[in-house]
């Protein structure tokens, strides 16, 4: 586990990340605007010229999850690739803190930006269209797992970015697939079985389903577990988190071995 000094270094890394990102705020402002306006436009098209009230609540949760993942991943990957190309990534690695801790701090910074965009992209359309989402305490655990699932996926992308600048293409591919299939267009229950099966392999989908069952169907935590929603989500998150941690460790070791830590 991280000691006090490592935690202090992580704090400095988050602080630096925030300052670097906010040095050019216009990009974030544009993303916020796109995030806030995209959802209702999308639902207007899906509803063939009207907003379908039955589809709005479940898809709103999905679009929020999408924006959290998309924007956090974009900040994380773009920042890493730029720093690797520039040379500051190598400088940051000459720290008393272990590399994984520095990467977790970068993830924290990226997720803060992702969270702001996700909240705005959900809250503004909810207010404009009067979308009401019932609250159920049973949703807390699935929601936490959903966030962890997303963070684990971004850490996986970061692990790839340590070795390959092609991570940008992978990031685009996956975020596009997630937007199409995680339920942001239509609830997963309306998908054909085979497509829903593929969608559940992607990050966010299982979490959105579990959260939806808790909020809209009123399932308790125990019922979520027996229904299989929670075990699958837990397994997906665990596999993704362990896989990301192992891949980061491996890729960092290979980058140090091959001399690619400071540049591609």
């Amino acid at each position: 586990m991280a000691d006090t000094r490592t935690l202090a270094v992580m704090g400095a890394e988050v602080h630096k990340g925030l300052r670097s990102q906010l040095a050019h705020p216009l990009g974030h402002v544009i993303s916020l605007a796109v995030g806030m306006s995209m959802y209702l436009g999308l639902q207007f098209v899906m509803g063939q010229g009207r907003l379908r009230e039955d589809l709005l609540p479940p898809t709103l949760i999905a679009i929020g999850a999408y924006w959290f993942l998309q924007y956090s991943a974009m900040v994380m990957v773009a920042d890493l690739v730029e720093e690797k190309r520039g040379g500051t990534f190598a400088q940051s690695q000459m720290s008393v803190a272990p590399p994984w801790a520095l990467m977790l701090a970068r993830l924290a910074t990226a997720s803060l930006f992702g969270l702001v965009v996700a909240v705005a992209a959900s809250a503004v359309p909810a207010a404009v269209a009067g979308i009401r989402i019932p609250w159920n305490a049973g949703a807390v655990i699935p929601l936490a797992l959903l966030l962890l699932d997303i963070l684990a996926f971004i850490y996986l992308l970061a692990a790839i970015a340590v070795r390959s600048p092609m991570v940008g293409a992978l990031q685009s591919l996956f975020t596009a697939l997630i937007l199409l299939l995680n339920g942001a267009f239509l609830p997963l229950s309306l998908y054909p079985g085979w497509l829903a099966g593929i969608a559940r392999l992607l990050p966010t989908t299982l979490g959105i389903e579990a959260v939806g069952k808790a909020l809209f169907d009123g399932l308790t935590l125990a019922e979520l577990w027996t229904s299989g929603a929670l075990p699958w989500l837990t397994a997906h998150t665990a596999v993704l988190a362990v896989g990301a941690a192992l891949l980061f460790r491996r890729n960092h070791r290979v980058a140090v071995r091959d001399g690619h830590l400071g540049q591609y």
């Binding site: 000094r5 202090a8 270094v9 704090g11 400095a12 890394e13 602080h15 630096k16 300052r19 670097s20 040095a23 050019h24 520039g86 500051t88 400088q91 940051s92 000459m94 720290s95 008393v96 803190a97």
Partner: peptide, 19 residues
């Protein structure tokens, strides 16, 4: 060093990185 940060911010950051 980070070009988007000020000289001061850079030094504080790198100092903290070293513990």
């Amino acid at each position: 060093v980070y070009w988007t940060l000020t000289a001061w911010q850079n030094l504080i950051y790198f100092g903290r990185l070293k513990g």
